[in-house]
Design a protein around this nucleic acid. Structure first.
Length: 227
DNA sequence: GCGACAG
DNA sequence: ATCTTGTCGC
């Protein structure tokens, strides 16, 4: 017998209006509290696109701290189901990131995400969203500004200035390397502003991006190393 | 109405 | 994000 057409929908298949409503609810759960456990496992998270933007590829690179020794890398592919809309990035990238996270053999103590944490119009950037969904402490590391005002920080590595939204602090504009464009660091969930900056600094080597994210970036874009 | 706008 | 070679600068 012919079955009645069922509207097959995935949990993450929402409209832009629904996404905003979800963010407004999630916003109330954010906790900018100090880390409650020693950080031994740090995961860098990033997403890339291929197939003319129809397929998303998430990459997660796990590192042991303080050695910054690479432990394992996992990836996941998923068809894109949500367009890029400034402010709603997490609804486009989180599904495939969760898929990759499930393949990780160990649970990270901290997530370093490519994108904003609370430095977002409704305070729910992808790092915050991911932290709320997983319960894992998370930090947002954006390569450019989404929202907020700031004074240009000094040109030396470590120089910084607060990222503000009115009188509220939403992050830190941090020079991760002398002479390069600054990073926009903000707490995702379960970490403080100070810790967010400290952990990004502790994961830096000789590049602009902290090592875990830099590695995830290369793997997600699948073109950093020509085989 | 006119800009701004993570990846 | 992605399309793309060489080139300028420390």
């Amino acid at each position: 017998m012919a079955q009645p057409a069922k509207p097959l929908r995935h949990a993450w298949d929402v409209t832009a209006a629904e996404a905003v409503a979800i963010q407004q609810r999630l916003r109330t759960q954010i906790q900018l509290t100090p880390l409650q456990q020693p950080v031994r496992l740090i995961a860098g998270v990033d997403t890339g696109f291929t197939d003319e933007g129809r397929t998303a590829r998430a990459a997660i690179a796990l590192y042991r701290f303080p050695e910054l020794e690479p432990l394992e890398c996992v990836t996941a592919l998923d068809p894109v189901r949500f367009p890029y809309v400034p402010g709603l990035l997490s609804f486009r990238e989180i599904p495939v990131v969760l898929k990759a996270l499930e393949q990780l053999g160990q649970r990270p103590d901290l997530l370093l995400c490519d994108g904003q944490g609370i430095a977002h119009p409704r305070r729910v950037g992808i790092a915050t969203h991911l932290g709320l969904v997983t319960g894992i402490s998370s930090i947002g590391v954006g390569k450019s500004r989404l929202t907020g005002h700031y004074r240009e920080p000094g040109q030396d590595k470590g120089d910084r200035s607060p990222l503000m939204a009115g009188s509220e602090r939403i992050g830190t504009v941090l020079r991760s390397r002398s002479g390069v464009r600054p990073l926009f660091v903000s707490p995702g969930h379960l970490v403080t502003h100070q810790e967010a900056v400290d952990w990004v600094l502790r994961c830096l080597t000789r590049y602009r991006l902290p090592e875990p994210i830099r590695m995830a970036d290369r793997i997600a874009s699948a073109r950093g190393t020509k085989k």
